[in-house]
Design a protein around this nucleic acid. Structure first.
Length: 431
DNA sequence: TCTGGGGTCCTAGGACCC
DNA sequence: TCTGGGGTCCTAGGACCC
């Protein structure tokens, strides 16, 4: 029997327990045992993570902070440290890679591992899961839950079943590792009683549609024909859900997927009404996007601008360029042209800019050093000068930090307003 | 009680080409 | 004079995930 055979339960889903909150408590033990909420305290903020003590009051991630404060007034609020979580996530991935190279990260604190090829060396998947969990505790001093199953969806549902419960006194330990199956009957016995919202890909809209057919559990879903589902939800979602309801999930674990878009957006503490400020913000967001593109050595052809009005209506405008760009001034120019077609009178609650249709960066004529050696003259034309400037900005930021240099137009009384990933991650800080 | 920021994937219509 | 079908690209919107 081939240990790598696909009929074995050889996919792990690893999910960190209350990740951001746990990192904060680990790094500041005075928080231990308290209801800790990580997120944006401001009027427009949301909860990023809540400790199990806070969850006992009904607080959970993505909840508006104002509601969380009402539910749990005694909660200790902690500003998120996004860079820190990225570091811990990298350490976590090192531990994953001790097990297998087949790691598919699906968020900062979650991943699928295909251990079918590791079985001969490392043993049964369930044993691998227990050891990995212990290793995460040992090295990172953090809790993780692991689901083990034949397919991705069931592994994900398994890690959910493995999780601790919430109580005012802290987490109530769960099994930590939960195996779904083996065998079709055991899989369906686990899957069919679950509410449809538990299925990855069923959100509020889909659940509401399915309600009309009297569907509440995955078992109810399984009893509908694929034709009915496709008719109600469309080809892709309909067929996919029908398969999932019968525990069929052909998606492989795919490591190192290429990114498809890079963007930045920001919700403002106060709605923007002055078009010149909106234009300045467009440049600021473009600068942040362009910097990340260049760092990743990619460029994009499609510029998309996103606007949200104070009443929360949200829409996008996009334009595809003949050639890819990674230069802030070029992105901002397109973004501003797109914004010119938009009515800004209602005010702007959120502005976003993203680049897609990504590919290799445009051929760069000269580096800063080349340009200097030439007496400061680069390619000469406008695009060439912009590219040279971008190169110089990157060089300076590498040496002196992101806020050392930036477009003059971003200078305000408070200094240079440079955006970085992770800033205002959970909403504006000021009310 | 008023909703963040970073993404992915799907759909649908129109343009354009063969 | 009326009438093709398929494929690809672009744009906009929507659902969903963490």
């Amino acid at each position: 029997m081939d240990p790598g055979a696909s009929d074995g339960a050889s996919i792990l889903h690893v999910d960190m327990d209350a990740f951001f909150a746990s990192v904060e408590i680990r790094d500041d033990p005075s928080l231990a045992g308290k209801p800790v909420v990580v997120g944006g305290k401001g009027g427009r903020g949301v909860v990023a993570a809540a400790s199990y003590e806070a969850r006992a009051y009904g607080v959970h991630s993505a909840m508006p902070s104002s509601r969380a404060k009402r539910l749990c007034p005694q909660a200790v609020w902690v500003d998120g440290h996004y860079d820190r979580y990225v570091e811990v996530s990298a350490e976590l991935h090192q531990l994953f890679h001790e097990v297998t190279p087949l790691v598919e990260g699906i968020s900062i604190d979650e991943a699928f591992l295909d251990v079918s090829g590791a079985r001969r060396l490392l043993g049964e998947p369930v044993d691998i899961a227990h050891r990995l969990r212990a290793r995460i505790r040992e090295v990172l001093d953090l809790g993780a839950s692991v689901g083990v199953a034949r397919v991705k969806m069931l592994a994900k549902l398994g890690s959910e079943a493995a999780k601790p419960g919430a109580s005012p006194h802290g987490p109530v330990p769960g099994p930590g590792v939960f195996v779904v199956g083996p065998g079709r009957e055991a899989e369906l016995a686990f899957l069919h009683p679950l509410p449809i919202r538990a299925v990855w890909g069923v959100g509020p809209a889909t659940a509401k549609r399915l309600e009309r057919y009297g569907v509440e559990t995955v078992g109810d879903l399984a009893r509908l024909t694929p034709e009915v589902l496709v008719g109600s939800l469309g080809q892709a979602v309909g067929r996919h859900l029908h398969d999932l309801a019968w525990a069929r999930d052909p998606r492989p674990v795919v490591p190192d997927q290429a990114v498809k878009s890079v963007g930045h957006e920001e919700t403002y503490a106060r709605d923007l009404t002055d078009p010149s400020i909106v234009n300045r913000e467009a440049l600021r967001l473009s600068d942040a996007v362009a910097t990340r593109l260049r760092r990743a050595a990619i460029a994009g052809r499609t510029v998309t601008v996103k606007v949200r009005y104070p009443d929360f209506t949200t829409f996008t405008r996009s334009k595809t360029l003949p050639d890819a760009t990674d230069v802030a001034a070029e992105i901002a120019e397109v973004a501003r042209a797109l914004l010119d077609t938009v009515d800004l009178d209602p005010g702007v609650r959120l502005l976003g800019i993203s680049l897609s249709q990504l590919g290799p960066p445009p051929v760069r004529q000269l580096t800063l050093d080349d340009a200097m050696a030439e007496g400061g003259r680069g390619r000469g034309d406008a695009d060439g000068v912009r590219a040279d400037v971008a190169q110089a900005v990157d060089d300076i930021r590498r040496k002196f930090g992101d806020r050392a240099v930036g477009p003059a137009a971003l200078t305000t009384a408070d200094g240079l307003r440079i955006k970085r990933k992770g800033d205002t991650q959970w909403g504006p800080t000021e009310p």
